[in-house]
Structures are given as structure tokens and as C-alpha cells.
Design a protein around this nucleic acid. Sequence first.
DNA 1: GACCTCATTTAACAAATGTTAAAAAGAGAT
DNA 2: ATCTCTTTTTAACATTTGTTAAATGAGGTC
Lengths: 190, 190
Amino acid sequence: MIAIKERIKALYPLSEKSMDLLTAIMHKEVHQKGYLLFEAGERSKKIYFLEKGAARAFHYKNDKEVTFWFGFEGDIALSYYAYFAGKPGYETIELLEDATLYVMNWDDLQSLFLQHIEIANWGRKLAENELINTEERFISHQFFSAKERYLSLINNYSDITQRVLLGHIASYLGITQVTLSRIRAGFGKK
Amino acid sequence: MIAIKERIKALYPLSEKSMDLLTAIMHKEVHQKGYLLFEAGERSKKIYFLEKGAARAFHYKNDKEVTFWFGFEGDIALSYYAYFAGKPGYETIELLEDATLYVMNWDDLQSLFLQHIEIANWGRKLAENELINTEERFISHQFFSAKERYLSLINNYSDITQRVLLGHIASYLGITQVTLSRIRAGFGKK
DNA sequence: GACCTCATTTAACAAATGTTAAAAAGAGAT
DNA sequence: ATCTCTTTTTAACATTTGTTAAATGAGGTC
């Protein structure tokens, strides 16, 4: 529980009391590679803190999987649509490795938001943080080429090609796996 | 002030008192087409509510402008980077038409967040809402082709081609204006 | 109306990416 | 080491998009 508490505090400083209230509504889960945290169409109200392991979110488009998010240690997995807008999520989130997670339920969290201003501000900060992350994924897509994004990906997560299939990375980058192979083959040739 | 109050309440229901506190820290501004709400590199702490008019956000990439956001009546303009992360924003936001806006300052808002739980929850909802909007722009980019996105754009904003230059729309879609012309010419031909 | 300016479309060619299929490389199990 | 299954790379060709430049269109001014 130590690491997760640090993760929570890093978002927004909390008093002991608020931290106790938050940890009281969360519990630990351990799941194997291949386990689905969410499935498309659900209105899941769970918020997962990924302590150990790797995950990806994907969407079915014309019967093909399009991966659009990777999560690693320290990341948070939740369906924004289901969580914030009450709409069914369009994403499936799959564990790529055996994982340790901490889980909270939105309903429990919601009642803390209404009663404790510190936790309400923590929740605000959580949303703001996820917003920055989402905007960065958006920017990356809008401003950079697939090659630039691939280089930045292996720069930020040097072991990603060991942990994630290249097919998933290609679909994350919005290109085919053939094109990704060409990019990987062409290093140095600009 | 009527319309803007409705806009604020639509995010999250507020008591009279909270609404008064919020409206006390905002003021109206009127600007002409071409006025810049933000310039790239600034750490602007302003939040604009666009009551009337149109705007776009763009970023300079290799000396070229890349438009990545359009705002119309009812939309909110703020630099997430500057506002939430304290980093300099990378975006310039330009008015595309003469506009009426309401402006708040983040510092004033911040002190209300710390004192009034209702306003803290309103701020949470504001961030959650912007998160959904940003995710939708991201999804649109990741899951749909430029042609599909163009069709959905003119479907949602039927007058957008009257209000926004096609060059801006093309860069928003991530294609050149020549390709956009080809898409526009090819209606019906699948 | 003729002229000017800016926005948009069209044309011709070059470059990049997609598609399909086959070959090569890796990882596990026997 | 061999076999099998999966992942990744390569090849050949088709399609799409980019690039540059010219042509057309639309609005405003004299």
C-alpha cells in the first residue's frame, strides 16, 4: 500500500484523514496477463491504479483492434466515457503482463467528493492530470509523424518493444505493421 | 450575463451564493477578429468562455501553422498546459470573428476551489468535461480517416466552411489543402 | 465593368503508405 | 536439435497523399 499512497499524494497533497478515507474505499487486485479490466460497451465505474505490469486500451474498428493507449507502472486506467460522462465506454483494456492493481469505485469516490473539499480538489487534480496526458497523446498525433512518434516512444519507454507487440505499437501510431518495420529498418537513413 | 450563467450551471449545479462568487471574479470582454487570446510560450492563466464568435488554436510546427482546435458559441478556451501544469502553452488562440467573451483568472478561481467545496466540484467537472472533449478529438484522429472526420465536421457544424478557412480545416484534419479539395470534389463517389 | 487580392480547385508528377503474400527470425516444448 | 506456432521483416505492386505550380472563383475597390 506504500507505493500507491505516494502515487495518490503526488497528485495532490492530502491530510492523513483524507488519505485514510481514500484508502478505505480501495482494494488490491492481482490479475494475469490477458485479463480484461474493461470491455467495450460497459459502463464501468472502476478506477485502476497500475502498480506493476503493463496494459493497453483498444477499440474495435471494422473488426480490427486499434490500440490507443499503453499503461505501465504508476499509470491510471479508467474509462473516461463511463466514468465522467456515464456513457458506455468504447474501449477494452487488456493486461499485457501479470499485474498488481489498486481499484476504487466511482460511486464511493463521488460521495467523498461531496463531503470533503480536500478530496474534491484531489479529484479535480486527477481529472486535470488525465487531461494533460490525453492532450499530450492528441498533440503527438496531430503534430508529429509516425516515425517521430515511434522514436519518442522508444525514447520514453526504452523496453516497450520487449513488453508490447509491434502490431500494437503500429496501430497505436496509426500505421500498418509493414510501415513500422520499414521505419525500424531505416534508422540513420533519416 | 444570463447566458454565461446558464453555461456555468450546465457544468455543475451551483447555489446562488457559489454562482455569485464565481461571477464576481469574471468580466466581459469584446474583441475583434484577429485578436489573440493567447500566444504560444505564454503561461496564461485566463479562462475564456466564448459567448459569441469563433476561434481556433494553432501551433507552429516547422514555421507552419497547425490548427488543432475550433471554438464556437458556448465553448471554453484555455491553455491546459499553462492552466493545469504551469508549463508555457504551445498554442496560439486566435479569434476568427468578432467575439464576446467572459474571462476568469485561474488564481482567483484557485482560491475559491480551496474554500468552497461546491466550487471545487464545479472545477472538477470543468476539467472532466474538457477531458471528454479532448478525448473525443483524440479518438476522432486515431479511429477515423480524414474524409470521415471532414464529413462529421460539416455534419456537426454545418456552417463551418463559411466561418473557417479551408486551409485551417485541412490542417485540423491533418492533411493538405489539396487533399481536402479532392475529398470535397469526390462526394458521392464513395 | 476592370482590376486587385486572397481563397480554392485542378493538374502532373514524386514520394509515402497500404495490401497481400511469402520468407525469415524467435520462443517454447518435446 | 527439431518441430511448431507466433511474430517480424521483406518483396512487389496498387493506392493514396504530398508537392509545386497554374487556373479558377469570389469579394471588394476604384
